[in-house]
Simulated scan of single mutants.
Amino acid sequence: MRVDLDAVTVETGGVRLVEEVTLGASTGQLVGLVGPNGSGKSTLLRCMYRALRPTAGAVRVGGEDVVALSARENARRVAALPQQSVTAFDFTVAEVVAMGRMPHQRPTARATEEDRGVCADALERVSAAHLSGRGFLTLSGGERQRVLIARALAQRPRVLVLDEPTNHLDIAQQLELLALVRDSGPTVLTALHDLNLAALHCDLLHVMDGGRVVASGAPYDVLTGALLAEVFGVRAHRVRHPVTGAVQLLFDRLPFVQSAENRGAP
């Protein structure tokens, strides 16, 4: 399902967090948002799953403004994994994943065989089936992240919104997770800190800085040395991945420029 953000602006407390962002994601694409901390990535994603309402502009999923959809219909279209997911009660892993089926059930209905099958499949896909009977609060950070991804997959969304989904995962799990969501079917919008992971897995990147999109395009076209120096304040050396051919980056600090008053100091 196609996603379009049209001139989205978000203000809170008199501060403009996102300013006139326009971008799109075609059906089935994996689209990444990258940028330094505070650039507006999470704020923009929160508008996608209605945790925030834009001050101006619109978010459209399948051509319809998400604000105009009922909560149930929006949950059938969009599943989200926020950066901070809090579960106050120690539900079992199976119970947490089953929550993903709620948009597809009547309020008083019990889980069906189909629901149970969807949940079991979601846990299997994230290699967490063995955790089914465990209490969620007893899990490690990486285990919790995989369970929350399973809950989102059990929701069977048309659009998947992920805010730093590789947090707490080791490198093998990071690679597996991004390959999984890429092949899962929905259109995926994700914020990522790791630029090399973004370059490997994303079809399209939008670079954010100061609440605006400052560059958009294929990873190789976007992740240039000049842009990375300007936005991230680092020097980047671009290389090709020996297997995939994707652009990969080696970083070091920008050369230190000595201030004028210290140039004559011993």
Rank of each mutant, 00 (worst) to 15 (best):
A51S: 14
T112R: 10
G40T: 11
N37E: 09
R53T: 15
G40H: 12
R53V: 15
G28L: 09
V34W: 09
E73C: 00
T112N: 08
A25V: 11
R110A: 15
L44P: 09
A122V: 01
G35S: 10
R125S: 13
A79N: 01
L44V: 09
A94G: 05
V96P: 05
V118A: 10
C47G: 14
G40K: 11
R60C: 05
P36C: 06
E64V: 15
E114T: 13
E95F: 13
V67C: 01
A109C: 11
G133E: 09
V66D: 00
G35H: 05
M48I: 00
V66R: 03
L69R: 10
R110F: 07
P54K: 04
E124N: 03
M99A: 04
T22Y: 02
P36I: 01
L131V: 07
V86A: 13
P36A: 10
V15D: 02
S85P: 04
E124M: 05
R77G: 02
G35I: 06
V34Q: 03
A94E: 13
A88M: 10
A94L: 06
F89M: 07
H104S: 03
P36K: 10
Y49W: 12
L33N: 02
L30T: 08
D121E: 15
G63D: 01
E124Y: 02
F136N: 05
V86W: 04
D65A: 13
M48D: 00
H104M: 03
T92G: 14
T55P: 08
Q29M: 04
D90V: 01
V67D: 01
D65S: 15
T112P: 12
E64Q: 13
G28P: 10
R76Y: 09
A128V: 07
L123F: 14
R53M: 06
M48G: 00
A111D: 14
A75V: 02
S26P: 03
E95I: 07
H104P: 07
A98N: 02
G100Y: 00
V67T: 07
V96C: 06
A109M: 09
G24I: 11
H104V: 02
G40A: 13
A129T: 14
L69Y: 02
C119Q: 13
R50V: 10
R72I: 06
T112Q: 10
Q83W: 11
V126S: 05
A58T: 15
F91C: 00
G38T: 06
R72D: 07
D90H: 04
D115I: 00
T27N: 11
T112W: 07
D115L: 04
T108S: 12
V18D: 10
C47K: 05
S127K: 09
V15L: 09
A94P: 02
V97Y: 14
T22E: 01
D121M: 11
P82H: 09
P54M: 05
G24C: 13
E113W: 09
L69D: 03
D65Q: 14
R106A: 13
D90G: 07
M102K: 06
C119M: 15
V126E: 06
